Simulated scan of single mutants.
Amino acid sequence: MVVEVLSNELNIKNYLKLLGVDGGGVNILAAKAEMHLVAIKDLHVGGANILKQDALSVGADLAVPKGTVIAAQKRVNALLIATTKELEILARKELAQPFGLKELALKLKKIAKVKKPKECEIMGVINANDDSFFSGSRFLERDAVVMIEQMIEEGADIIDIGAVSSRPNAAIVSATEELERITPILELIKEKNIAQNVRLSIDSYEPLVIQKALDAGFTIVNDITGLENDAVCELCASYEATAVIMHMQGTPQTMQNSPAYNSVLDDVYSFFSERIEKAEHFGIKDIVLDVGIGFGKSLEDNISLIKNLEHFLTLEKKLLVGASRKSMIDKIFPSSVEQRLSGTLALHLEAFRNGAAMLRVHDVYAHKQALEVQKALL
C-alpha cells in the first residue's frame, strides 16, 4: 500500500474521473472536497446558536465568540467553515429559521454555486499620452498600432487604449484634448481593421471619446468612474458594448489621500451591487467588475481584495484585476516601476487563483507564459 498526501489545489473532478468514479459520484464527492470560509457579521445571537447546531449536524462548524451560547452579546460575528455540499444542505435548513437566517440561506446558496474561472483573458495596455506612470506603455499613432500587433502575437485577448493618465495626482485633461490625443490611433485602427483580430477596449469615462472609439470598432468601455455618467450607460447599451465597472474611492487627484473603509470588501461589494443595478436599468447586458487596485486603496486594502476575490463572485459577473507594475509592489519590496514585473506576476497569478477572469497588463508575453504554467499546475 502507498499513501500520498495531495495538494488542496488538486483538480478533484479530473482525479475522481481517473479513479473511475461514476459520473454522479464525481459531482457529489467534488462538492465534499471544496472548503469555504464564510465570515458572517452582525448576526443575531439567537441565529448564531441555531446556525452552530445546524452546522454541526451536517458536518460543518461555526466559530463564534465566547459567551454566545448564553447570549452574552445580542449580536456577534462568526466564521462558517463548510464544504460546498454542507453549504447546500445548510442553505435548505436555514430557510425555515428566524433571526435573519433565511436571508443568510439565500446567500449561502449563491456561495455554494460559485465557480472560479478556469481561463483568464489578458488585456494589454496602450497609453496614448506621455504621462502614464509606466513609460513602457506609452505609444503614439503608428507606434501604438505596431505595439498592438505585437501584443496580439504575444497572446493578448483584449487591447485597452486610453489617452489620459489615472495615476494618483494625474493632471486633469479636457474631453477635447483627450479626443485629440486618441483620434489618430482610432483612425489607424479603423484603417487596418484591427478590430477583426482582437477585442478593443476604450479606457475613458468621457462620452465624446467613448462614442468615437465605439464607432471605430471598440466593443468594451473601461470606465474608472464605474458608470457614474448616465450618458456612458446609454452609449454602452446602444452599442451593446461590454461595460467594465471599476471601483475608485475619490478621484485620481484625491484617491490616495488617506483612503479608509468600514470594510473594503463590503464597501466595494455594495458599490458594485448599486452600479450593476444601474447598468441593467439602462439595458447593459455584459458587465465586468474591476475592484480598482490602487484606486483609493491602502496596501492592506489591495492585498485583501486580491486574496478575497471570491467574495465578489456571488455577483455573477466576470472579475478584472489590474495590478500591473503598481506602487503596492514597491511597498512590499522596494523597486522602480521598471523592476516590478516579478511582483506583478505574483499578484496576478494569485488573482487568477482567487477568481479573476481578466488581467489588465503591460507585459503580455510574460503573463501568457505564466498563466499557461499556472493552469498546468492547477
Rank of each mutant, 00 (worst) to 15 (best):
F282S: 11
F282V: 02
F282M: 05
I284N: 01
V288S: 03
D290P: 02
V291H: 00
V291Q: 00
G292C: 03
G292H: 01
F295H: 07
F295K: 02
S298W: 03
E300I: 12
D301M: 07
N302I: 02
N302D: 13
I303Y: 07
L305C: 04
E310L: 12
E310I: 14
F312P: 05
L315A: 04
L315P: 05
E316G: 08
K318Q: 13
V321T: 02
S324N: 12
S324L: 13
R325S: 10
M328P: 01
D330R: 07
K331C: 08
K331H: 14
I332V: 14
S335Y: 09
S335C: 13
V337K: 11
V337D: 06
E338R: 11
Q339D: 15
R340W: 07
S342Y: 08
S342M: 07
L345K: 08
H348L: 05
H348F: 02
L349I: 10
L349A: 06
R353K: 15
R353D: 13
M358E: 03
V361L: 09
V361A: 07
D363Y: 04
A366F: 10
Q369W: 11
Q369C: 13
Q369K: 15
Q369L: 15
L371E: 00
Q374A: 15
K375A: 13
A376F: 14
L377D: 10
L377V: 13
